[in-house]
Write a protein that binds this DNA or RNA. Sequence first.
DNA 1: CTTGGCACTCGGGAACAGCGAGTGCCAGGG
DNA 2: CCCTGGCACTCGCTGTTCCCGAGTGCCAAG
Lengths: 337, 337
Amino acid sequence: MVDDRKLAVLRAIVEDYVSTNEPVGSKALADRHNLGVSPATIRNDMAALEEQGYIQQPHTSAGRVPTDKGYRLFVDRLSQVKPLTGAERRAIETFLAGAIDLDEIVTRTVRLLAQLTRQVAVVQYPSLTRSTVRHVEIVPLSERRVMLVLITNTGRVEQRVVELPDAIGDDRVAHLRAVLNASLDGCGLSNVPDRVADLPDRLAAEDRPVAATLLSVILESLVERHEEKIVFAGAANLAAADFSVGLRDVLEALEEQVVLMRLLGETGDLSELTVRIGSENPYTGLRGTSFVAAGYGAGDKELARLGVLGPTRMDYPVTMGAVRAVARYVGQILAGS
Amino acid sequence: MVDDRKLAVLRAIVEDYVSTNEPVGSKALADRHNLGVSPATIRNDMAALEEQGYIQQPHTSAGRVPTDKGYRLFVDRLSQVKPLTGAERRAIETFLAGAIDLDEIVTRTVRLLAQLTRQVAVVQYPSLTRSTVRHVEIVPLSERRVMLVLITNTGRVEQRVVELPDAIGDDRVAHLRAVLNASLDGCGLSNVPDRVADLPDRLAAEDRPVAATLLSVILESLVERHEEKIVFAGAANLAAADFSVGLRDVLEALEEQVVLMRLLGETGDLSELTVRIGSENPYTGLRGTSFVAAGYGAGDKELARLGVLGPTRMDYPVTMGAVRAVARYVGQILAGS
DNA sequence: CTTGGCACTCGGGAACAGCGAGTGCCAGGG
DNA sequence: CCCTGGCACTCGCTGTTCCCGAGTGCCAAG
């Protein structure tokens, strides 16, 4: 039913369509790829492929265009990820190596990815919930106000000003700091609630109200603040790609954190590439676009995800290569810092 | 030469063109505004206005369209800022009041402004150089690594991991922290270099290498890091405005921090509105757009700027009203927190 | 099963005409 | 001196028509 030659035809159609952006006809196929058969034969195969929903005609008597289903087959069985060139690898390395803090790593990554793929890049900040506490700092601002700073092993820093129920001196601050760090150091963020459950009981009575306030702030705003930060870059590339139709919807989707989270969120294994094509996307405004995502992380733990959004008609092998490579390099940088 | 009636005609042209987005002719003007004169008279005035460069014809025998010079005159002399409605004010207030830290204030502000004006909003983070040190924190991570955290009076937190030349114990960390805070507390960031110039000399010899390292990091990366962070939102509104021409250039400009800085940078007085129209913009990609900016700050110090980017054909009075109002509210929020 | 041939379809571009909004100019009137 | 109505003119826009050619589906022969 779908013999090898039909698959070869489908592959050729996808490749030609991606590079020319025009419906591809049987004759052009026979010319540009040496499939060893005549246009007429190709036509028969194309009819079969259309029958099964892999390709379709925009208008009667125009060439064929791959459907989402066709791209899916192409990605799953007909293509292989194209590795980057040496020059590209070196460029990535030097570009990312210059970053000095987490913010800059993420910013540089997202720009790099956008430039590399000439599409829209999306990067999620390393997830709080999957990282561990490296340090908790309490900074007195005035008698009844302190700043809580939580530092994670991924270099992320969350801070928050807290109003205290009692005035508090420097020595008590130091004590609380020591206690908090003793219980939380190295603790996975998702385990924080368990660890601190009985903390107030183990403190002197006078410390309890303050400690309770601080803990509730830590829990509510630092740990349970699931909303991961997501940034994107390369929106200008959208305008260059010709699909002006729906551009507005795509831009809107990009500014909706919720949509981005759903795009990135449904996670596969670390460094597995996820490709979501056209109507497979979870948001109607993103039909007509495909998303290539990968997880990244230090060591073997996936901390967050990143990806590239572009027209369904994109060069999947190249895009997938770029996404995979960048994900790996970011992982290395994070592990090393 | 430019008598009152001609100005009235110009005003009418701008208003009509803004609301209809079509070149406006003499007859339509006479109908929709009661200028008390006939179309023929208006035609004469329009000829004069065109002669002086305030309006122009896209094609022979089409209506007239304001030029940049025409908009400039309109903004300077023919319009007055339109205050927001009560409902809008309340919406701003409640929306901004919910913000918990600086990041969120800025994020909410930029979205609010984009939504309010249906254009692209640009907000600069409160400038480091104009704020003062509230606290310096040194957090030991390991024997030879510490994290430096600088907290400003605007709630901004800058952090950085530092490798030390010597191993250092907790007590020496505490000492350094105390010394640093003693000299820097309340100090304007631009004065930091002066304040710390002779610090190493006043320390014990064993502390000097470490102190020097820390100070150089503070100076280089925290204080002298002039590059202010700038964010934008509402790019989708660009696609809605019909000027698909040049959209790509505009998007590119928005992703260039440098361009944004130049847009915002040339500052007027606090809470003075700055309007830059079309070709007055410092970047070629932004011809065809206008930018309305205002400074904001806590109290009477301008900390940073924010603004709105849209097509030259924008509703200036309304946009200016929104920008001014949001700038004021953000100032209040910052002052209060 | 493949291939060449052939009639058919239809989107898209070129050429063309008519409409109508808008203009500039001019002569007459307050 | 300025305003006004009238009038001829311009020219972009729209709808129509026509033609071309790429591409197809089908069929009969190898």
